[in-house]
């Protein structure tokens, strides 16, 4: 018995030692990232929280103004305008982008050996700088001579003025942003590849058609991936900046004809911070957005419990 205890003790000690080595290695791997996070994300975040209670203008020393910036943003009509523009855009863009990406992934899943090639093709637009894409889409979406309206004209549709009509600016931007669904396609494709074939076979044997197999097997099995992209895309849509800024606010010409319909929250934040030097106010704006995002994310997480399947967590 004593010998057995000794052997177990040695094995246990060896395991502890191995665990310690692994733990050290793990810290080694994440250490650099942690430093980056502390210096480039958490530090500036804390700084912005402090600055949101000041009149900081980036040049002079900040002075404490208490909650004045937060009170100001509650009465600033442009904040509510920018926030509503952003939320409307997110509601427009996210479901459509997810549906388009899922359709493309389903098609790619059937392609077989050539899927790698198509995967690359679909992912390439993600690598295109948003500024270049924005400039390109200004031409494509021009109401008078743009490619989109010219194509619609061929089938007898008089397309709207996507970039100049306030009612069509946000739908036009949502279409523009579909250009970058390649990242989601790759995620969905990976999820689709992991759905066990036996489930489809069993469903077929039970008489399920293609739609029922998709609805009862595919969707539940990739619901984790769908939920992940829902969260990420929602946050990304709420932080909409680069493409809209390029198209409607960026250059001298665009800023002259800036359109309230394209005034997204982060654009307004940027204007306050860098055009008017109201860094304290811009910091307060950033924290309001942070709170909004966290509330929306919390709601999504809460609701997801009913719809998302996690292998290994459900009975």
């Amino acid at each position: 018995m004593a010998a057995l205890t000794t052997v177990i003790g040695r094995r246990s000690g060896g395991r502890r030692s191995a665990n310690r080595r692994e733990t050290r290695a793990a810290y080694g791997f994440i250490g650099l990232w942690m430093v980056g996070f502390l210096v480039f994300t958490l530090g500036p975040m804390i700084a912005s929280l402090v600055l949101s209670f000041t009149d900081y203008n980036a040049i002079s020393s900040p002075h404490n103004v208490g909650t004045a910036n937060y009170r100001q943003l509650m009465s600033d009509p442009k904040v509510s305008k920018a926030l509503s523009n952003t939320l409307i855009y997110a509601v427009m863009y996210v479901p459509v982008a997810m549906a388009v990406a899922l359709c493309l992934a389903l098609l790619l899943n059937r392609v077989g050996r050539a899927s790698g090639f198509f995967r690359t093709i679909f992912y390439l637009p993600v690598m295109t700088p948003p500024v270049a894409a924005g400039a390109l889409f200004l031409l494509l979406l021009n109401g008078n001579q743009g490619l989109l309206n010219s194509t619609l004209h061929l089938v007898g549709i008089n397309g709207p003025n996507w970039t100049t009509d306030t009612a069509w600016v946000k739908p036009g931007l949502a279409i523009t942003m579909l250009w970058g669904v390649g990242g989601m396609v790759v995620i969905y494709l990976a999820a689709l590849r992991q759905v066990p074939k036996e489930l489809y076979e069993a469903a077929s044997l039970d008489g399920a058609g293609a739609w029922m197999r998709f609805r009862r097997v595919t969707l539940p099995m990739i619901s984790g991936a769908l939920f992940f992209t829902l969260i990420v895309q929602t946050i990304s849509a709420l932080q909409m900046f680069d493409q809209a800024y390029t198209m409607f606010f960026g250059g001298q010409q665009n800023s002259t004809y800036s359109n309230d319909a394209a005034l997204f929250y982060v654009i307004y934040l940027f204007q306050q911070g860098f055009s008017f030097l109201h860094m304290g106010y811009a910091s307060a704006l950033a924290w309001l957005l942070f709170v909004v995002i966290m509330i929306i994310t919390a709601i999504q997480v809460r609701v997801s419990r009913r719809f998302v399947y996690y292998e290994g967590e459900r009975d």
């Binding site: 480039f40 994300t41 958490l42 530090g43 500036p44 975040m45 804390i46 700084a47 912005s48 929280l49 402090v50 600055l51 949101s52 999820a191 992991q194 984790g224 991936a225 992940f228 969260i231 990420v232 946050i235 990304s236 932080q239 982060v266 934040l269 911070g273 860094m279 811009a282 910091s283 704006l285 950033a286 924290w287 957005l289 942070f290 995002i293 966290m294 994310t297 997480v301 998302v308 996690y310 292998e311 290994g312 967590e313």
Partner: peptide, 24 residues
């Protein structure tokens, strides 16, 4: 497969935080 705990801890917060850090 993606697990709830894995991605909730890692991704959502990090994306949401990035704007708040931009002004500081």
């Amino acid at each position: 497969m993606i697990t709830r705990r894995g991605f909730l801890a890692g991704s959502a917060g990090a994306f949401a935080l990035s704007v708040a850090s931009a002004c500081g």
